[in-house]
Structure formats: structure tokens, C-alpha cells
């Protein structure tokens, strides 16, 4: 039953440099270069070696950008991750202070994150009617609450055996910090999974149209569950490395991280409404914000000014698609007339 008209449909995708540049990721790369030029201008000490040295402080959050992209692509949101960082960081200290060997400390921390993720995922998939914003608001308060209880009146705990956790904050060959390598490897895995595998495609399908995805045989709740579990796991990675750099945890550890991570993703072109954006965009956006922070810090700009810049970038970024849509619509209207 070949088409009666014999019409042929093109299946070749022409990729031109212009097209690439006009994607969100293309624009971000341009912005990335511009930001670096800007940074070099405002700060004398903005050199590669210096950036490499200062970066680890900020990189722990990058762990969470990766699974948060999954969650946002699904059309969900998870605002409990900052609290998971706090809880797992606290636990890491306690486990170590109790005399556990280092592998057990790491496993304990990751297991705690995993359990948090399983809790979030179970609630989200058992009660899909509930907005994820509300359920993770509940767990956000609970997870930090548990950390507060275990921290007691003092509100903080120190990692006594600092030598034990040192390996996580060292530099390989005295130049490349371990954390950069770990982030890099995990980021590549997460990116490949999201952009190139059937699981990643399923996430986009769910975020674009949950019902159609379900009708097409995508196991919606399983995918959501996996995303939440990964989120919890990566939040514990963040908690672990944060502890490695701060040698302790307190009740405000990780506070506000959830919003910073979501902001990086959204700035990277991943819409909070689901189905849009790539992790490449999210990672570049995260790097841009991190580099800006480093340079502004070096230039002794009021450190809080970075908040204003991040906020403004975010709002401009989310306004652009709408403006572009309006222009396209007007063009089409004119064409029809």
C-alpha cells in the first residue's frame, strides 16, 4: 500500500553551523566565551590555574544539576535536594566519627541519599495526582528536620578524622582536583543516557505529553521513580564532597542549593514545564555561573551581587523563547495574509 501520490518525505537532517549557533546550547557557548573575556577583564588573577584551584568549592552542586535535568525534563521538580545534602553530609560526619573505615563512610552516605530518593520517588509515583512541588516541600522540611534533630542543640558537627576524607579533596598530579574528574565522568554518563538512550527518550516523551507517552508503552511511573532515586543519590554525592571540603556539616548546609541547581538547569534551556532542553545546555550554564562567581569573587565585587546577576540572567533566559515565539507567530500570520 505504497502512498498513492508517491510523495517522498525527506529523512535527511541538514546540520548547518548557522542552525547550531541558533540553538540554545550554541548561544550558551557564545555566552561562555564572552563571560570568560569579561572575567579576564575584571580580574587580574583569572587564570586557568587559579580557576582550576578555586573551582572545586563550587563544583559539588554540579552533581545535582545532572539528575535535576532529568526531573525537570520529566516535568517534575524536586526541592528537597538541598536538605538531602544536609542530611547526608551530617551522616557522613557521624559515621566517620563513630570510627567506620572510609569505604563504609562513603557507602553510608550514598545509601542515605539513595533512601531519600526512594522516599521521594515512592511518594511521587504512588500519588501521581500530587504536584511534585508539594511532596518534595514536605520531604525538604523532613530531611533537614532529621538532620537538625541529629545535630542537636549545637547545630553542627565536625569531621574529626580529616585525614580520612582528604583523598576526596586532593589534586591528581598536584593540578587536577579529584572532584573535577569525578564530576566529568558522571556528567558524561548522565548526558549520554539522557541524549542517546531509550531511557532518555522516554523522559522527554513523558515531559512532552505524559498521556501520549503512556499510551505508547512508556512506563511513566518507573521512569519517574528512577529519576528521583538518581536525584537522591547525586545529592548525597554533593553532600559527600561538600563535607570533604568543609570538614563538617551544620543545619544550614546545602540550604538554597535546590533553587541554585534548578536555576542552572533552567538557564541552560531545560524548561520547568518538561520535555525541553539538553543536559549539555545545563552543564554549560552551570559552568558559566560558576566561572562568574569565581571571577567576581577575585575582583572583590560584593559577593551577593552575583545573586542579582544570576537572577537577571535567569529571567532574561526564560523570556527569550516567548519573545521568539511571538515573532514567529507574527511572521506566520503575515505569510497567511
Amino acid at each position: 500500500m505504497a502512498g498513492k501520490s508517491g510523495r517522498s518525505i525527506n529523512a535527511e537532517q541538514k546540520i548547518t553551523a548557522k542552525k547550531l549557533l541558533f540553538t540554545w546550547e550554541g548561544a550558551l557557548i557564545v555566552l561562555f566565551i564572552l563571560v570568560n573575556i569579561f572575567n579576564m577583564n575584571i580580574s587580574q588573577s583569572y587564570t586557568f590555574a587559579n580557576v582550576l584551584r578555586e573551582m572545586p568549592k563550587y563544583l559539588a552542586e554540579m552533581f545535582m544539576v545532572l539528575p535535576m535535568a532529568y526531573i525537570l525534563v520529566l516535568g517534575d521538580i524536586d526541592i528537597s535536594v538541598g536538605s538531602i545534602v544536609c542530611l547526608t553530609g551530617t551522616l557522613t560526619c557521624y559515621i566517620s566519627n563513630a570510627g567506620a573505615p572510609f569505604p563504609i563512610v562513603i557507602l553510608g552516605c550514598l545509601a542515605a541519599g539513595l533512601i531519600c530518593g526512594v522516599i521521594n520517588g515512592s511518594i511521587a509515583t504512588s500519588f501521581p495526582e500530587l504536584p511534585s512541588m508539594i511532596t518534595t516541600l514536605g520531604t525538604q522540611i523532613i530531611f533537614r528536620g532529621i538532620a537538625e534533630i541529629s545535630l542537636g542543640g549545637g547545630g553542627s558537627v565536625a569531621y574529626n578524622n580529616t585525614k580520612q576524607i582528604m583523598p576526596l579533596s586532593t589534586k591528581l598530579g598536584k593540578t587536577v582536583p579529584v572532584i573535577i574528574l569525578v564530576v566529568l565522568v558522571i556528567a558524561i554518563i548522565f548526558t549520554v543516557v539522557l541524549q542517546l538512550t531509550t531511557f532518555g527518550r522516554s523522559l522527554y516523551a513523558i515531559g512532552s505529553n505524559k498521556t501520549s507517552a503512556f499510551y505508547a508503552g512508556v512506563d511513566v511511573q518507573k521512569c519517574r521513580f528512577i529519576a528521583y532515586v538518581l536525584m537522591g543519590l547525586m545529592a548525597s554525592m554533593c553532600g559527600l564532597f561538600l563535607t570533604a571540603y568543609t570538614y563538617g556539616a551544620n543545619t544550614t548546609t546545602g540550604q538554597g542549593f535546590e533553587m541554585e541547581v534548578i536555576a542552572m538547569c533552567v538557564f541552560g534551556g531545560i524548561a520547568s514545564t518538561g520535555g525541553k532542553g539538553t543536559l549539555i545546555g545545563g552543564i554549560i550554564a552551570g559552568l558559566i555561573i560558576t566561572l562568574l562567581r569565581i571571577a567576581l569573587g577575585q575582583a572583590n565585587v560584593n559577593s551577593q551581587m552575583i545573586l542579582v546577576i544570576v537572577g537577571a540572567l535567569l529571567i532574561i533566559a526564560v523570556l527569550i523563547p516567548g519573545i521568539k515565539g511571538k515573532i514567529d507567530e507574527m511572521k506566520k500570520l503575515r505569510a497567511a495574509a
Partner: peptide, 28 residues
């Protein structure tokens, strides 16, 4: 229910069979 309107036609057609087509059942 039937389509993901924001997606290309091709991706819509192959969504239910993406696993069958995937290399090693994993990579699209």
C-alpha cells in the same frame, strides 16, 4: 493521547518501538 505534538513525525512513529530498534536495547 496519540501524538507528542511538539515532536517530529519520525520520533512519534518510532516511540513505541524505540527499544526494539536501539543498539543493544539501550542506545537509540
Amino acid at each position: 493521547q496519540g501524538l507528542i505534538l511538539s515532536w517530529g513525525l519520525g520520533r512519534n512513529v518510532t516511540l513505541p518501538i524505540q527499544k526494539k530498534l536501539a543498539k543493544g536495547g539501550i542506545f537509540n
